[in-house]
Design a protein around this nucleic acid. Structure first.
Length: 864
RNA sequence: GCUCGGGUGGCGGAACUGGUAUACGCGUUCGACUUAAAAUCGAAUCCCGAAAGGGGUAUGGGUUCGAUUCCCAUCCCGAGCACCA
């Protein structure tokens, strides 16, 4: 037999598969559909290392089995190529981003094509292709033209809101077009607003949080060390917060790892609490209104001894701004504090090791609505402006942060000791002391400590200080129960060149006109310079023809295209729609999605939001885009560090394929360890996978048409078929490979191998090593393609073995084993076991007190 | 700090619902083949012990006829969140 020449074999079959369109997927079929998707790559300048294809190989093995099992499998690939890295690469190498992307894709494909992945390449997408981003823009316009109706709990066309206003608001018709638009902007799913960005005046560009480093002098840019300040800029947003609850509850139905769901739950950050208003009073008697606070512990309201506002709180701004609403005794001091806070970075502000700072607003007090007590008012940056109401009631006895602050500024600490409840069981007292955050001793040390705390005497609260009591006390002070989320609306604009243009026109009167469908795609203009403008605006603002037309100069963020690309694969070349309705109805959603866990709070959340929005508009048919999700672990360098150019520990898949073959690479990456785990690449260990492949190659010589099936081997074979099928289904590829290795070891003991048995084995090995098995299949005389054969069924009747080995234990220790005929009764086993010399020795004449028998597995005799 | 994972030979890792711990692979040692090497094949490989036997799944305890698996406490590693009131 010929030597195993992986280069020749792999080249041959890869071209044959292309010629015979082996992986072409039709859009209509009587077969059941199955959509297996990889997260499409960002074609970076550095190319792929062996870690990247791990996920692709896993999903490929799975897709291949599903295909052989008779499913119509959609398994496509494409490129996500808009965004900052491509733009920076282009700037550094002085080529146009489009050129850079083209080159990078070429590199990627030279690395991907040789691995033997079964993609239907005819469906390839590229987010930077105008034929693709036309639909990204189209969907954006749908969001611009929609609002979230809380009553129906879904997005609806903005026209229904206009009708509502016309009906309910008599002044609506009198309003100018601009006024109407401004009002509607507050409701649109895609809306224009302002937000703070990191601005580098010298670089003339906006920086992302991770492009900034902190120094003692303040924040500077990572590259060049130029100062960075905060700047308010016009932005586009997506109203993702309207979907917070659906994004949260939808998780329950998804077959994702608990770990990943937990990350998303955390990010959404739901918390139930109360909003309670505190009356504000100036010392000279003026009452400028009430300020609401958000708290999850309204039951500690009686322990609130001061109130804190975030430095950005609108009321603070009003109070210091020429004393509009009253006279602060220390306006200058407060202004200074706000200025200091403003120059801190996010990292500085959230570093919990640093001491809390703040300034009292002198000359003004808040009134605790529970007991009418006047309490001081502070501005402090440990209160976040964007969460809750941007104001808190501080309960130092029951909150660590408040406690720390109170200690520093000598503020009273009052413990809520007990609450008197009056319910059907009569008047009861619930001691509260145990719930205190601050230890009793610490409080007593304190000068301002005012005794035993406050007693709630109202006697009208019922139930425990749980949800019910929280509700009661909230109602008692006229507050309301509310739900808050940590999640914030997504900023949907970048001041960069390399992104989808936002298809809107700004008119001279300040109104906005969305582009009409037939004006799409709005193509990126060809420009000589796509360098930052220096004003913080997008490079598009420097394109005269662009600005003349009043076109929006911001572009979309990198995640726009990736939020829906999987829908385009369903009907990748459609010119009339992002996908034909029939294709959407057939493919529905992704059944198996494979990719890295690092996208937990980015892509995976945005896509879910995007999909829910499309569902509201009836453009897709499922609630969720990705039913099952598997996250592949990293492959580390041989030095146990993350593979990266920086460490010089990357391994190019092309080298591995050249030296060992694609089949070996595939088997090795699947065999290394659990799919979701991270482990180092080993140049030693890969040889094991190569040996396995070669062994199968050599064993094929022993295949004999006339050879009879070996009963024991056939039984192992069918057990292996079952195990491999189950393992691929659950992405336990490492144990699937291991089971096949055991089978091959068994096979090696046979002089002649039955052809039918060997063929069954080739079929289950095919998803892992498609090239070599295809070659052997054709060597056996088949004209058909193995990759299009059907998946074998494990035959239970052939698995039966008459003999089994059971362990015999005395007092829980294995002392012997017995070879018995399957299915014997306990009594029969015991008498056989007693006859064994090893057993007899241990029992001697002692009495058997107890017998435990696990059928066909183990016998345990308990003796005195 | 909080939350979620995890800790098994020299190494990557197996072990179903509590039922023979260390499957499979790498490495190492010895042997066969060879002038020699590579490749291949065979044997051994958790620790102590000549053996009988004993110990052993991060550590200490518990439940059980029996625990890597369940419970309690402690230590360590990884990931996510991080002043979210």
């Amino acid at each position: 037999m010929r030597e195993y020449d992986h280069l020749e074999i792999e080249k041959k079959w890869q071209s044959t598969w292309v010629k015979k369109k082996a992986y072409f997927t039709p859009n209509s079929s009587k077969k059941k559909k199955h959509y297996v998707l990889d997260m499409f790559p960002y074609p970076s300048g550095t190319g792929l290392h062996v870690g990247h294809p791990k996920g692709y190989i896993g999903s490929d093995v799975y897709a291949r089995m599903k295909r052989m099992q008779g499913f119509n499998v959609l398994h496509p690939m494409g490129y996500d190529a808009f965004g900052l890295p491509a733009e920076q690469y282009a700037l550094e190498h002085h080529i146009h981003p489009r050129k850079a992307v083209e080159e990078n894709i070429k590199t990627f494909e030279s690395q991907l094509m040789i691995i033997g992945l079964s993609y239907d390449w005819s469906r390839k997408v590229n987010t930077t292709d105008p034929a693709f981003y036309k639909w990204t823009q189209w969907m954006f316009l749908k969001m611009y033209g929609s609002w979230y109706n809380k009553k129906t709990d879904k997005a609806e066309p903005i026209e229904t809101l206009v009708k509502k206003f016309e009906k309910e608001d008599s002044t609506w018709k009198m309003k100018s077009e601009k006024e109407k638009q401004d009002e509607l902007m507050k409701y649109r799913i895609a809306y224009e607003g302002y937000s703070e960005v990191n601005w580098s005046p010298i670089l003339g560009t906006v920086l992302a949080n991770d492009e900034i480093v902190d120094t003692p002098k303040g924040p500077v840019s990572e590259r060049g060390g130029y100062p960075v300040v905060k700047k308010q800029m016009r932005q586009w947003f997506l109203r993702t917060t309207e979907y917070a609850d659906r994004l949260l509850t939808g998780l329950d139905k998804l077959n994702w790892s608990e770990h990943l769901k937990e990350i998303q739950r955390n990010w959404i950050g739901k918390s139930d609490g109360s909003e309670i208003e505190f009356q504000i009073v100036f010392d000279h008697g003026q009452k400028p209104g009430r300020i609401p606070v958000f708290t999850t512990r309204p039951d500690t309201l009686f322990g609130a001894t001061y109130m804190v506002l975030a430095p950005e709180h609108p009321w603070v701004t009003l109070a210091v701004d020429n004393n509009h609403i009253g006279v602060l005794d220390n306006r200058e001091e407060v202004l200074r504090y706000i200025a200091v806070v403003k120059n801190k970075t996010e990292a500085e502000r959230t570093d919990d090791k640093k001491e809390k700072t703040g300034v009292e607003l002198k000359g003004v007090k808040a009134i605790n609505p529970a007991n009418g007590e006047k309490i001081p008012l502070f501005v402090a940056d440990y209160v976040l402006a964007h969460y809750g109401t941007g104001a808190i009631m501080a309960v130092p006895a029951h909150d660590e942060r408040d406690f720390e602050f109170a200690k520093k500024y000598n503020l009273p600490i009052k413990k809520v000791i007990e609450i008197n409840f009056n319910d059907e069981k009569g008047l009861r007292t619930i001691p509260y002391g145990k719930r205190s955050m601050a230890p009793q001793e610490l409080i007593l040390e304190y000068d301002h400590y005012e005794g035993d705390g406050y007693l709630i005497h109202s006697g009208e609260f019922t139930g425990m200080p749980t949800d019910k009591a929280k509700k009661k006390i909230t109602e008692f002070v006229g507050g309301k129960i509310v739900t808050k989320y940590k999640m914030r609306d997504a900023v949907f604009a970048r001041q960069r060149y390399w992104g989808e243009p936002i298809p809107l026109r700004h008119n001279k009167d300040g109104t906005i006109t969305p582009l009409r469908d037939r004006e799409l795609p709005l193509k990126l203009p060809e420009v000589k310079s796509y360098q930052p403008t220096g004003t913080g605006e997008s490079p598009l603002a420097a394109v005269k023809s662009w600005v003349k037309q009043g076109l929006e100069t911001n572009t979309m963020p990198g995640w726009a295209g990736s939020s829906w690309y999987f829908l385009r694969y369903m009907d990748a070349h459609n010119k009339k729609a992002f996908a034909d309705r029939k294709a959407i109805n057939y493919w529905r959603n992704v059944d198996m999605y494979v990719g890295g866990a690092e996208h937990a709070t980015g892509h995976l959340l945005y896509s879910r939001f995007w999909h829910m929005f499309l569902k509201d508009l009836d453009l897709v048919v499922t609630d969720e885009p990705f039913q099952t999700l598997k996250n592949q672990g990293l492959i580390l360098g041989t030095d146990n560090r993350k593979m990266s150019k920086r460490w010089g520990n990357t391994i190019d898949p092309r080298d591995v394929v050249r030296n060992y073959g694609a089949d070996t690479l595939r088997v090795y990456e699947m065999f290394m360890g659990p799919f979701e785990g991270s482990m180092p690449w080993s140049t030693d260990n890969i040889i094991g996978s190569r040996r396995f492949i070669e062994r199968v190659w050599r064993l094929s010589e022993r295949v004999n048409r006339k050879a009879k099936q070996d009963k024991k081997f056939t039984a192992t074979l069918h057990k292996t078929i079952r195990k491999v099928s189950e393992d691929i289904e659950s992405f336990a590829f490492n144990t699937a490979v291991s089971a096949m290795m055991i089978l091959v070891n068994e096979m090696d003991k046979l002089d002649k191998i039955s052809k039918s048995d060997f063929e069954l084995f080739l079929k289950i090995l095919s998803p892992f090593a498609p090239h070599m098995t295809e070659e052997l299949w054709s060597n056996l005389g088949h004209k058909s393609l193995l990759v299009q054969e059907s998946w074998p069924r494990a035959d239970k009747n052939k698995m039966l073995e008459e003999e089994v080995t059971i362990a015999v234990q005395i007092n829980g220790k294995v002392r012997s084993e017995a070879h018995i005929v399957k299915g014997l009764s306990q009594d029969e086993i015991v008498s056989i076991a007693r006859g064994l010399p090893d057993v007899e020795k241990w029992i001697m004449n002692r009495e058997i007190k107890k017998i435990i028998y696990i059928k066909d597995k183990l016998l345990n005799l308990v003796v005195a």
